[in-house]
Computed example of a mutant assay.
Amino acid sequence: MRVHHIPLIQPLWDYLRLHHSQTLRSPLFPVILTVSSYVVFCIPYLVFNLMGRRWPFIHKYKIQQDRNPTGAMIFHCLGITLYNHLFYIFPAAVAQWYWRPPCPLPEQSPTILDIIFGMLGSLLLFDFQYFIWHMIHHKNRWLYKTFHAIHHEYMAPFSLATQCLGGWELVTVGFWTTINPIIFKCHLLTCWIFMVLHVYVSVEDHCGYDFPWSTSHLVPFGIYGGPIKHDMHHQKPMSNYAPHFTHWDKVFGTHAEFTWPRIDIGLMC
């Protein structure tokens, strides 16, 4: 007799599929999922920014301890994010109702290994895509000034600067984030988990804090850059083009280690 192995998350998928089918099949669901995730991930870092040196146990992990976002900077990034979602993201999602039928929900859930390999493959492919895009836009002065310069208004990145982007860059990043799991033929649940994961690592890259639990410290051998490497990119824009990993910058000679001297918080208080 042939034994069928039931994936560990099959009960969860059955519940979602049977009780929330209409929500999950809506073209707006991925947008709502990523936007809400973005807000949730940004809030703790914004609280850290607002508290600043009043929370020395947190502030000691700030990469550029003498640079903290002001209220004007926070509202500027919020305004750009709101504008991009109102005039680019939500219209694109609504337009899908006219040309793409609601996606079917498969009965079988993915396995844990399916999810891990799907997310890893999608993240590595995105890292390569954005590395090329990013490097070209820094090398070409017109492309940089026209599309990418807005993201470099702040030398010390903070969480809300993650989506402080021009429309062209936001659409490009969103396209890759959506299409890569499809390229790897991932399950819909894997696609959604990858979207949330990618929002998290993107916010973490821009958070401005180098915590011991940052992804770069959890991934061994220095293959993952994390916030400290992306912070260096905002200080030296012709380096560290890859958004997450370090291998492409090392191959192309654009890798830079973090060299900004940390300030002794004990002397500042």
Rank of each mutant, 00 (worst) to 15 (best):
R2Y: 13
H4G: 14
H5V: 14
P7A: 05
L8C: 13
I9C: 12
Q10K: 04
P11V: 00
P11M: 02
L12H: 07
L16A: 12
F29C: 01
V39L: 07
L46I: 14
F48W: 06
N49T: 00
L50H: 13
M51S: 08
R53S: 10
R54H: 10
R54T: 13
W55C: 13
W55D: 12
H59E: 15
K60F: 06
K62C: 04
I63S: 02
T70M: 00
A72D: 02
I74M: 01
Y83P: 10
N84L: 05
H85Y: 07
Y88P: 09
I89W: 01
I89P: 04
I89H: 03
F90H: 08
W97H: 04
C103S: 13
S109V: 06
P110E: 08
L120Q: 09
L125W: 06
F131D: 06
I136T: 14
R141T: 13
K145Q: 15
H148D: 12
H151D: 02
L160W: 00
A161T: 14
L165V: 09
V171N: 04
T172N: 06
G174R: 00
W176D: 06
W176G: 09
W176S: 09
T177F: 04
T178F: 04
I179A: 14
I183F: 02
F194I: 02
E204W: 00
H206A: 03
H217G: 12
L218C: 10
F221C: 10
G226L: 00
G226N: 02
I228Y: 05
Q235E: 11
S239H: 11
H244I: 15
V251P: 11
V251I: 14
G253K: 12
G253E: 10
G253P: 13
A256Y: 13
T259P: 13
I265P: 01
C269G: 15
